[in-house]
Design a protein around this nucleic acid. Structure first.
Lengths: 138, 138
DNA sequence: CTGCACCCTGTAGTAACTACAGGGTCAACA
DNA sequence: TGTTGACCCTGTAGTTACTACAGGGTGCAG
């Protein structure tokens, strides 16, 4: 495969995405169906690489596929849709902050359990009682 | 339903868990099968509430169901040597620390997106380009 | 010309729920 | 007493975001 043409395997290696996942993204319309070679192989270009990189990165940041689709749509129509992107990102940030706080709390609890445990107070490892406040969230 | 007995709906409300999810947890053995009333309703107690609270909290923090199962095992096997418990707990602590680092990094990214996007001049929003570096991760 | 790595389609499996369908139970209210 | 209406039951099938085959074709190196 010469010049700027990439196989699905090239895309896979370049982005760290499994080949099956790339085909899946095509199936659900996140990636456009590429041209085919004479042997029916998918022939990708540079723009496909960029688009897939974006998808992977957004997924890595915890955006759902529908959110990614929305973000891609916003960038496809090169209008001033910055506000919409901002809303999506802010929404996600709030979620991350909540998880961060919870995780810090869990870390503290786990750490104190380890300290109690290490000192040999057998039978006092009450992890559930420590970690399951009756306080319901959501 | 009088005294300390809770219906599945009570548990659902108290923990923010869907009724179907509670039954699912029972099916896969995360929650013990509770006693039944004369009308075949599930009758839960306080300890079930605590256990479910813990499961939800751990799930919310990104632990998989198998990890949750292991964490629950920490508290169930109280007669176990403290040293063994300590090893498992430390392992989970490492896991928590990794998640914390990931989330912090994610938070930074999102925050920078929002700052560039929300405050930036409309029409200079290059979020998609910013999010899709040719640099492949993983 | 024969391996072998790679590609193709299609289907089915995974985790962790979530949503019905079709029916039973229970407390309240007229 | 009867009848709503909210709640419960089991069982099955759908969802999200992949992942893993099965069964077969392509392309290049030796």
């Amino acid at each position: 495969m010469s010049s700027g043409v990439l196989t699905i395997g090239d895309l896979s290696k370049a982005t760290g995405t499994k080949v099956e996942t790339i085909r899946y993204y095509e199936r659900i319309g996140l990636l456009p169906a590429p041209d085919r070679t004479s042997g029916n192989y998918r022939a990708y270009g540079k723009s496909d690489l960029g688009r897939l990189s974006f998808i992977r990165r957004a997924r890595d940041l915890g955006f759902g596929l529908e959110q990614v689709r929305e973000l891609l749509g916003l960038s496809d129509q090169k209008q001033r849709s910055c506000e919409a992107v901002d809303v999506i990102a802010r929404d996600h940030l709030a979620d991350v902050d909540r998880k961060l706080a919870d995780l810090k709390a869990l870390r503290r609890e786990l750490d104190s359990i380890i300290r109690r445990c290490g000192r040999g107070t057998i039978g006092e490892c009450r992890i559930i009682e420590a970690l399951a406040p009756i306080d319901p969230r959501h």
